[in-house]
Design a binder for these strands. Structure first.
Lengths: 207, 207
DNA sequence: TTGACAATTAAACAAACGTTTAATTAAATT
DNA sequence: AATTTAATTAAACGTTTGTTTAATTGTCAA
């Protein structure tokens, strides 16, 4: 019982820290802010995680692990078109659901510094890229898709979803939505999925 | 003479600050770092700009102003397809040339806070969006383009270019390039342009 | 050459930072 | 119930932060 309670408290801190780091960046958020938002004493951050840096690492690691289910997710589908659409849907769902986290990931990748963490992140993101890459490439080989620039097509898919989810305020203005949080409702999720399906259908020449 | 020399020095500081802010974020960069990189005394930042905050504002403002040439740039072209392709080329050129700056802009938009500056930035970016939006919408009305989700198509264009230019390290891995700076050579600029032209040609049903 | 003003400097400033300490409370174990 | 261990706290730690000060150097007109 006490074990789960402590676990919950750690998770609370991680959730709060993730949101704050995503919204303002690592350096912009102070340990005092985190402890205040999580309603804990400031010393508890060091007590639980060792340091602010290690807290950040744990924020990144805990959700980076679970990104390997993509391959399993698509192996049930027979055609490459189905596989591709399944991945697109999965990506959109994940990005909508974990947009705070994705914000951290892409901000980290936008930095021009080679740390152990950026190395890990780029490797992991590249793995996700590769899954999509393989599907499109094989689809082309099996004459299911037209010949395209595969690398940039993958980047297009990620780019749209990423831009949509991480730039909420601009998405708001463009889509004429009044409230920022409404950008992430099912209605717009469906719209984004529809758009990407049509885009890929046209681009890859799917009948 | 002394006037231009001082102007040059101010520009130097702005250039250095822009690069550092883009690479690490506003809060992560100290005034001491900037002054060291620009080879000036630390007090000169306050002397020239008043404060770190105001320096940041000037970094943003000086390049945000010149984003209104898009409309003029495309009015010479007759067809909407030509207009659209011209914009795409312009966007790619601008993003490649000022990728540090664009990094700042999109990082600012990823934040969940309504300041005077984010307001200004989103307004300006939205204006750029609107230009592209109008071209596509009118192209559809004149039966030059197929019917598409215009807002998300615009977001797609920006999204690809943005993802490519602001995530240099991942672009590197995906495109199998060894050196990060090679991502921004003319060769890959041409490749990106070609990809976007084909993508839009297919999506908008251009013959 | 002198005087006035701008540019530049090193040093000091208070405030905020991440982290640690030592004391206290709560929980678990014996 | 007594004792050991874990959780939590307020206060203090030494650094680093952005900014200011007061002194010095450089520049140009009179």
């Amino acid at each position: 019982m006490q074990d789960t309670k402590q676990q919950d408290k750690k998770e609370d801190i991680l959730d709060v820290a993730e949101r704050l780091f995503a919204e303002h960046g690592f350096e912009a958020v102070s340990v005092r802010e985190i402890s205040k938002a999580a309603d804990i004493n400031i010393a508890m951050v060091s007590y639980y995680f060792g340091s602010k840096e290690k807290l950040y690492e744990e924020v990144v690691h805990r959700k980076l692990i679970s990104s390997e289910s993509i391959v399993k997710f698509i192996e049930h589908h027979s055609t490459y078109q189905e596989k591709l659409f399944a991945i697109v849907d999965l990506f959109i769902n994940k990005f909508f659901e974990r947009r705070h986290f994705q914000n951290i990931i892409f901000r980290e990748m936008a930095m021009n510094q080679r740390t152990a963490m950026t190395e890990l992140i780029t490797t992991r993101v590249h793995q996700n890229f590769s899954v999509v890459y393989d599907v499109i490439e094989k689809g082309i080989k099996h004459k299911e898709f037209n010949k395209v620039d595969v690398e940039l097509t993958v980047m297009t898919i990620i780019g749209v979803v990423k831009t949509y989810t991480t730039s909420g305020t601009i998405a708001c203005k463009v889509l004429k939505i009044d409230e920022v949080e409404n950008v992430y409702t099912d209605k717009f999720k469906a719209r984004l999925k529809k758009h990407l399906r049509e885009l890929l259908t046209n681009h890859l020449g799917i009948k």
